[in-house]
Nucleic acid binder design. Sequence first.
DNA 1: ATAAAATTTTACCATATGGTCAAACTTTAC
DNA 2: GTAAAGTTTGACCATATGGTAAAATTTTAT
Lengths: 218, 218
Amino acid sequence: MTVQKSAPSAVSRSAATRKRTRIQQEKEQLILEAALDVFSRHGFRGSTIDQIAVQAGLSKPNVLYYFRTKEAIHRRLIDRLLDNWLEPLRGINQDGDPLSEIQSYIRRKLELARDFPRESRLFANEILQGAPHIQEELHDLRDLVDRKSKIINGWIEDEKIAKCDPKHLFFSIWATTQHYADFDAQIRVVLGPKEDGNDRFEDAARFLDQLYVDGLRK
Amino acid sequence: MTVQKSAPSAVSRSAATRKRTRIQQEKEQLILEAALDVFSRHGFRGSTIDQIAVQAGLSKPNVLYYFRTKEAIHRRLIDRLLDNWLEPLRGINQDGDPLSEIQSYIRRKLELARDFPRESRLFANEILQGAPHIQEELHDLRDLVDRKSKIINGWIEDEKIAKCDPKHLFFSIWATTQHYADFDAQIRVVLGPKEDGNDRFEDAARFLDQLYVDGLRK
DNA sequence: ATAAAATTTTACCATATGGTCAAACTTTAC
DNA sequence: GTAAAGTTTGACCATATGGTAAAATTTTAT
């Protein structure tokens, strides 16, 4: 019977679901926060462990003490992200008022884009590169979309909203809302310097509300 | 008086607007084609000159004979891209029927996404990273959008289409159409294996047509 | 206070990568 | 055919980068 006596590491502990030390908790969060910043700005391959370490105020080997590899950091971020990201979609309620359900879905997605633009860009980067790290999670998404599409189709059959392809409806909602985070650099230039009293996201919300309500009303 | 007798290079010639040899033309196109493939899949930093060289069937130094740096290749691609990319927007005609003009703008943008997905992803990558290489070009875009927004506003004043914010209208059109190229990996999974007789882009076109026509009709 | 466990640092290593250079080779103009 | 111009290659270089090992330091439990 051999005993694991080799180097202790945060990694082996976390893998083994043992309790985490205070420092571990803090540093992991610190690293993830820094990594989110770096990854969302430069993509996976464009980011270096050193950049993340500097941003987190740690040394590179110290970062690697908490996460075995660069990929491990990325994976954790993506996992954490997807949970929150799909929450609004999960929230669509069959028994609610169809148009209100869709409206509030759009509003919640837009709020996510406003409040978590880095997460949106992290996701966009990953999909743009062909989603190499999240094929599995995407299949969960497909199941979720399938279920929610059935709800939409139900509303259509009940003649509560206009006939349309539910999946393309979702695509368009994702596209229009996430666009405000992902294409921020373009939008900033096109809208020009912000005039006071004008909130980009307010205007977007108003526009999308009108577009979808009028576009989907029976 | 010293004579420039050092290494001849395609670069120096191209910079000096001299006539280009047949080989130069061919190889440059070959490299740009390969680079488009590589850059659009891995982003700028995620791509290597070697990858581009292999894809083009050339050696790395040979690639660098035609383009001084990796950035130079990228820049040329982006320049070439923007020209085509903005063409549909330029085509919006004040004197046409408003709804038809918008419909055909959407259709043309969707066709670009279908026929030039690599270009779309190249652009998306660039914007996602904060548009570091195309600030100048983005300002041209702003002017163009300003002009076209005035047209839309004119139509609104004439009560030919519903009141809306023209810029956000453009944002939503860009988002929804480009989404089909940029988020291809996600869309593929969500739609599942292609059933025959079903064309993703046909369905998208139908959906968007309905959304915008009903959403904008006066 | 002390020993064990956890954390951090210093010094590395191997590989990948952007880019250079000069020699070898090919094409073109005459 | 020949010389000049243009093209291609192989050998390199400097730096960046992901990752490792072990020693040094700090924290925690007792």
